Amino acid sequence: MPLSGGRITPGVVRVGRTVRRAATASSSFVAELLDDLQREGFTGAPRHLGFDTAGREILSYLPGWVPARFQSWTDPQVAAAGSLLRSFHDATRSSRLAGRHPVVCHHDPGPNNTVFAAAFIDFDTAAPGDPLEDLGYMAWTWCISSKPTAPPATVQAAQVRVLADAYGLDAASRSRLIDAEQEHAYTSANRKTFDAALD
């Protein structure tokens, strides 16, 4: 059964309770990462089950809903995503794969890569990094929108705080969160509103 929605790896299919996808340059790292996460008891990611005779990766299938498009999310959904990200980072903190960096980052923890809201999928861009790389990206994709129908900036800013609180972000890192988010897409028009919400 073809699975749609992916931007990086074409031809992803479901076979029974598994997902099959073409191997990429990142496959070895992802396999090691998923194995490490399993050993650490992190359940918010698929298991890597090896390769099939066609050379495709075999991953466990995670049942649930993965949204097809970006939209507004409730505070509980944002909080669940923040908690999930923290658990993922903690499972990789000071690990061999993180190397000299604090954690391994997913680098694309948007709603489109989340089985709501219990697991992340599509670890193609995972690599060692700083937690704010993921958290800034998550603030942008989960909390902030420039659409005419989007909630007011004050409401969006409050939701960024929900995310930071759920993640357990310390005070020093909060002062850098909006800078991290700006590296992705946010414009500075409402910068004071967002900074004030995190104080």
Rank of each mutant, 00 (worst) to 15 (best):
T18D: 08
R20K: 07
R21E: 05
A22G: 12
A25Y: 09
A25C: 00
S27T: 13
S28N: 15
F29G: 10
V30C: 09
A31I: 14
L33Y: 13
D35N: 15
D35R: 15
Q38I: 05
R39K: 14
R39M: 07
G44E: 04
A45Q: 08
A45M: 06
A45L: 05
P46Q: 11
P46W: 11
P46I: 13
L49A: 12
G50Q: 06
D52A: 03
T53N: 10
A54F: 13
G55F: 14
I58W: 08
Y61D: 10
Y61F: 15
Y61C: 05
L62A: 07
L62Y: 11
L62G: 05
G64K: 06
W65A: 10
P67L: 07
A68E: 04
R69P: 03
F70M: 11
F70Y: 14
Q71K: 13
S72L: 02
S72C: 06
Q77G: 04
Q77Y: 02
V78C: 01
A80N: 03
A81C: 04
G82D: 00
L84M: 09
L84V: 08
L85Y: 09
R86C: 02
S87E: 10
T92N: 07
T92L: 07
S94C: 13
S95G: 01
R96I: 12
R96E: 14
R96H: 14
L97Q: 12
L97V: 04
L97D: 09
A98V: 14
A98N: 11
H101G: 06
P102C: 04
V103L: 03
V104P: 00
D108A: 06
P111W: 07
N112W: 13
N112A: 10
T114P: 02
T114M: 08
T114G: 00
T114N: 03
V115G: 00
F116K: 02
A119P: 02
F120A: 03
F120H: 11
D122S: 09
D124Y: 10
A126C: 02
A127K: 08
A127V: 13
G129L: 04
E133L: 03
E133D: 07
D134P: 00
D134M: 00
G136C: 01
M138Y: 01
W142C: 00
C143T: 06
S145G: 05
S146V: 03
